[in-house]
């Protein structure tokens, strides 16, 4: 019962934080471009509008199940991420999982959705999926290597343990292992599907990419999981590098700070091509990661 309530709370928190953060992102972007921008609730409106569409077209059963899989994947992922430390609440089932599992869970949903994209028969969608997978190939290596540095540092894959080890700001992994944070920062932005690594859903190049055939309520589901996933990833990085959070306010503050950082970076750069993205990830963050490995493993 506790787990159920806890899970519901996590999902709700995620959703609310999700649309608020993304609303903020839109407004932040608008202000940078000297516009008024939409209201901070705009993402809620968009999401609700899609969920309330009266017509939805599907291209076969798999097309329908794809968004369901991705949503289930998002929920599963966020339930495996502990939101708070030293608390009974907002833990989900995170004691039964670990960091590597979470990293892989992040991919399960999108791949399930890729099946739906494929079964729609729209070549643009598949093109987008391929680009997404290619980008994943680029970002995952430095991202995972950065996290591996953290796992090595604490000799565990458990997020709880890593979080517990960071008591006090001086023990934050951000401070103790800055290279790891530097390594994962850009791949993290890419995994959030934010600029400059947002070629996957590019409306101009690939006609909205994987979402080309999704409309109506299915698109609503996709948006919902996207918002929740954004938060889950943010919380994960907060857990790993910013020492986690003891209460919800702290969590929101830390996640927001991190979000602000990534937002600022993505607002400043234009979009890269797929191969540029991969090449970039394999040169800069991966080079940095190798440096980190040498420092961590061989020299210290």
């Amino acid at each position: 019962m506790h787990v159920l309530l806890d899970s519901l709370a996590m999902i709700a928190l995620c959703y609310v934080m999700g649309f608020l953060f993304q609303g903020f992102y839109r407004q932040f972007n608008a202000r940078l471009q000297r516009r008024w921008g939409p209201s901070i609730w705009q993402n809620l409106y968009d999401n609700m509008k899609f969920l309330l569409k009266s017509e939805t077209l599907i291209h076969g059963p798999m097309f329908f199940f794809g968004p369901m899989i991705i949503a289930a994947g998002a929920i599963t992922t966020l339930l495996f991420v502990p939101f708070l430390k030293d608390s009974d609440w907002l833990q989900g089932v995170s004691t039964h999982g670990n960091l590597i599992l979470i990293i892989y869970l992040l991919v399960v949903g999108p791949l399930g959705n890729a099946l739906a994209v494929g079964s729609s028969g729209n070549p643009f969608g598949v093109m987008g999926v391929t680009r997404g997978l290619t980008r994943l190939m680029g970002l995952e290596v430095p991202f995972f290597l950065g996290l591996a540095l953290v796992m090595l540092q604490h000799e565990t894959t458990s997020v709880h343990a890593i979080m517990a080890a960071q008591d006090g700001i001086a023990h934050w992994n951000l401070i103790t292992n800055p290279i790891a944070f530097a390594v994962i920062l850009l791949p993290f932005i890419a995994s959030q599907n934010a600029s400059p690594f947002d070629v996957v859903g590019a409306p101009v190049e690939v006609y909205a990419g994987p979402r080309v055939e999704f409309g109506g309520r299915l698109l609503g589901v996709l948006m919902t999981q996207n918002m929740m996933m954004t938060i889950a990833k943010l919380v994960l990085v907060v857990d790993l590098f910013l020492g986690g959070a003891s209460n919800v306010l702290e969590l929101i503050a830390k996640a927001f700070a991190l979000f602000l950082l990534t937002t600022a970076i993505s607002a400043a750069f234009p979009r890269l091509k797929t191969e540029q993205t991969v090449d970039f990830f394999w040169k800069v963050p991966l080079g940095l990661a190798v440096l980190g490995v040498v420092l961590n493993v061989w020299l210290i």
Binding site: S54, E55, T56, L57, F64, F65, T76, L79, G216
Partner: peptide
């Protein structure tokens, strides 16, 4: 968890209003 989430999401989707066509 995964199966449960999948079933719940699908069920909610079916329960919500709006028509779907192939």
């Amino acid at each position: 968890v995964f199966g449960g989430a999948f079933v719940i999401v699908t069920a909610l989707f079916w329960l919500a209003r709006g028509q779907m066509r192939r």
